[in-house]
Design a protein around this nucleic acid. Structure first.
Lengths: 155, 155
DNA sequence: CGGTATCCCTGAAGATACTG
DNA sequence: CAGTATCTTCAGGGATACCG
């Protein structure tokens, strides 16, 4: 496929997106279904059918989203060794490093997007203690606020 | 008169989305433009025209996205006290708490979505030191990995 | 089981023009 | 400056049917 359909209209990637690591991140997994698929992945789901049953997504869409996530290197497609044509979709290292983002999104969503008290909590598996809110820290472990940091271009 | 209009097609919010704090988070600010607008907000931009010039977004779209962010309580619309009809769009507390998410998205995007070395880095304003990678920690400050945590429903 | 192949509908967003 | 209004295009995704 061509990377440049020219045709400026529509969903062409603007320069503002192309150079922004935040936009590039969400372009990698931030669409309607990919993050739900990845949420399932972090819960241990690996099979097409399980994704489909859990998410109630159409098969065509699921196929497309899984293919994209594989192409992006976030999931890996591995055949199950059982003689059948079954497939596993497993998180790559790149995918696993989305973990902190997902936890941060969860914490913010639980805190701010429900009317009542948060309906969920992330807890330690071993002892059930609530996980601390994710924070930005410097290399000394001190918590940083928005005004404490700035972006620099390296290239 | 249909008992269940259902009207399933299109972008209706599925149950999978409605109850998922991750999906709800991205539904709040994860669209094509909102996160770029918020990126600008974290850089100190507050005025319509500055958003428009920096992002090269159409005015209609910018108006719509700003309105949505205000409605969601992420931005606040405040008149500038200069006699003119100028407006500021400022981050609310809810908006400011997106900070850690944006930093995490930036770090992941810089690390994984460029072919060469990361083109950007988040550094401390005061001394230029690279900010540590955001991590998930328990209340004792110990770093947690995906297998160490689980989601529990409170309601 | 794990997909393809169509067909259709919808919403996001660009372009352009107009307004107080 | 800070929007509205209108028109159009386009990609995502549901529904449905089919396949090895």
């Amino acid at each position: 496929m061509k990377p440049a359909p020219a045709k400026s209209s529509g969903k062409a990637v603007s320069k503002a997106r192309a150079h922004c690591p935040i936009a590039r991140s969400l372009d990698s997994f931030g669409d309607r279904w990919s993050l739900l698929i990845l949420r399932e992945s972090f819960s241990g789901v690996t099979r097409f059918d399980d994704f489909q049953k859990n998410l109630k997504v159409s098969k065509a869409t699921l196929t497309a989203r899984l293919a994209t996530l594989v192409k992006r290197g976030i999931l890996r497609r591995v055949p199950i060794e059982d003689g059948a044509r079954r497939m596993h979709y497993k998180l790559t290292e790149k995918g696993k490093e989305l973990y902190v983002i997902f936890i941060a999104l969860r914490q913010w969503g639980d805190k701010w997007t429900f009317d009542g008290p948060p309906p969920n909590a992330v807890v330690e598996r071993a002892n059930g203690r609530i996980v601390a809110p994710v924070e930005v820290r410097n290399i000394d472990g001190e918590v940083l606020k928005p005004r404490d940091t700035v972006l620099v271009r390296l290239s």
